[in-house]
Design a protein around this nucleic acid. Structure first.
Length: 301
DNA sequence: CGTCTTTGACCCGCGC
DNA sequence: GCGCGGGTCAAAGACG
């Protein structure tokens, strides 16, 4: 497990014009670690939220399917074509999980019966723990330009599988959070057309703090401190709340510790998370967006 | 010895 | 129904 800590944002790139107006979710900025030879070079290329409904298995299509007409053809085309932009954006994603659990209760008996049947008919096979239709957690993917596949994110992961990806020479790795009772998974795969790009897809949200990230300064930080960065407050963006939360919960906690000066956006994103009240209520403004997007992009007139 | 990775087999959903 | 591909399981091995 390598340690990859982005030290600084050397520059926040501006968005392509065609993106800035059509895809508010995308954040493109660069992180560089001082020593690029130590695997620190990382560039966050894009963020994508998949919502929480059932999903297809290829939500992050490989660049090979994308015409290369832009500086970042994969990302651009993918983001624009993704129906995530058109979906209800699950503003009340919590209702989904509750509905799911009710459905799960409802199906419990059927499931148990099916389990019995299955075990009878497959005594020689490994008994499945459940025949329940898999309930998918909200997923959240982003692309990073990195030399390493498995980016350190502050949580401990156990690799439980690796599969070859169709039409790609690079395998996809499957990780699960090692914390008991935490059901978060992540998939890591490298882009085919641009091997320097790593696509990381998180599924679910951590139910525990980062085990690798000491937070000595947390107690000393007044709540609401996240608004002190001078970013413009914009209108509510509830559609993105779960996206932001996923991002904060899953990715940021570690690459950017909270001890250093909050001179990089990710670090102060992290501070926001730590200092603010947990939950969506924190993110009444643009939240993540206002953090990663250049301020001029947030002005929507 | 505990933890993690590897890897082949299996399960499952989906498209044809 | 069948085949394909993605996702998961779990035994075995590696490693510190």
């Amino acid at each position: 497990m390598e340690s990859k800590e982005a030290k600084d944002i050397v520059g926040a790139s501006s968005f392509p014009d065609h993106l800035s107006s059509s895809f508010p979710l995308q954040g493109i900025f660069d992180f560089y670690e001082g020593d690029k030879n130590s695997l620190g070079f990382m560039e966050l290329l894009g963020i994508q939220d998949f919502g929480s409904s059932s999903f297809d298995t290829d939500t992050v299509p490989l660049p090979s399917t994308v015409p290369s007409s832009s500086p970042n053809p994969t990302l651009v085309n993918k983001m624009e074509s993704s129906d995530l932009l058109n979906q209800p954006a699950t503003p009340n994603s919590s209702s989904i999980s509750s509905a799911s659990s009710e459905a799960a209760n409802d199906e419990q008996l059927k499931v148990e019966e099916q389990e019995e049947d299955q075990q009878k008919s497959k005594k020689l096979l490994k008994p499945k723990k459940t025949n329940q239709k898999r309930q998918r957690e909200p997923r959240f993917a982003f692309m990073t330009k990195s030399e390493v596949d498995h980016l350190e994110d502050g949580y401990r992961w156990r690799k439980y599988g690796q599969k070859a990806v169709k039409d790609s020479p690079f395998p996809r790795s499957y990780y699960r959070c090692t914390s008991a009772s935490c059901n978060v998974k992540k998939r890591v795969e490298r882009s085919f057309s641009d091997p320097s790009i790593v696509v990381t897809t998180y599924e679910g949200q951590h139910t525990h703090p980062s085990p690798l990230l000491p937070r000595p300064s947390l107690a000393g930080v007044p709540p609401g401190n996240g608004t002190t960065f001078g970013m413009p407050m914009q209108g509510a963006l509830s559609n993105y709340q779960h996206l932001q939360q996923s991002f904060l919960n899953n990715f940021l906690p570690m690459n950017f510790g909270c001890n250093g000066p909050s001179t990089n956006a990710a670090a102060f994103l992290h501070d926001r998370r730590l200092c603010g009240a947990p939950g969506p209520s924190l993110l009444k403004d643009h939240g993540l967006l206002q953090d990663i997007l250049p301020s001029h992009m947030l002005k929507e007139d």
